[in-house]
């Protein structure tokens, strides 16, 4: 019998970057144009088989970070891994991601994470410069160009995170 490991995984990022959409795409395979801002936390679950270990990801889709609505530290406690989500059409969301990343490290230590540069289907409105990308790469961030709308790289990014958890 293979081992089952339950893990708390958080999605962090500025508001409206597509956290909820990414979870919905990854877990249920659906996408909606409608924007319903997340209040508090929404929890979902997805099992991923990595080798002979089943990772049962408890996905904490936390409300977007805003200057007056910070993500509480309490949500970060006990996290095993996290996804930082950046909206490619709003360069300012990188700063929010960076701040959350720092807070997460302070709270949970050096745990696995991946960075999702989302809304990659909106090429016309794309704002991230090569400079931005290079800076993130330089920080050692493992980045994925994703789209909750088309589904691009969504499974890949989550699976990568699961692999990090299993190892």
């Amino acid at each position: 019998m293979s081992q089952v490991l339950q893990k708390k995984v958080c999605l962090l990022g500025a508001f409206a970057v597509g956290k909820t959409s990414l979870v919905s795409r990854f877990v249920k395979g659906i996408f909606s144009e409608k924007y319903l801002s997340t209040m508090g936390v929404k929890i979902d679950r997805k099992n991923l088989q990595i080798g002979d270990v089943t990772i049962n990801m408890m996905l904490w889709d936390i409300h977007g970070e805003e200057s007056n609505k910070k993500v509480p530290a309490a949500y970060m406690r006990g996290t095993a891994a996290y996804l930082l989500v950046v909206d490619g059409t709003r360069a300012s969301t990188i700063a929010a991601a960076r701040e959350l990343h720092e807070r997460m490290r302070a709270e949970a230590g050096d745990i696995p994470f991946v960075v999702l540069l989302n809304k990659s289907d909106l090429q016309d409105e794309w704002q991230l410069s090569d400079g931005n990308m290079a800076a993130m790469q330089a920080e050692g961030w493992e980045c994925f160009l994703t789209s909750a709308c088309s589904g691009l790289n969504v499974d890949l990014a989550f699976t990568r995170l699961a692999e990090k958890l299993a190892s």
Partner: peptide, 28 residues
């Protein structure tokens, strides 16, 4: 700390497939 479900029991034996979600949600 993590809100993860350690164990779940229910009165009619049938396991609640969403028990782990409930557990995390309660914690949240």
């Amino acid at each position: 700390e993590s809100g993860l479900l350690l164990q779940h029991v229910s009165f009619d034996e049938a396991a609640n497939k969403d028990a782990d979600l409930v557990s995390s949600m309660l914690t949240a």
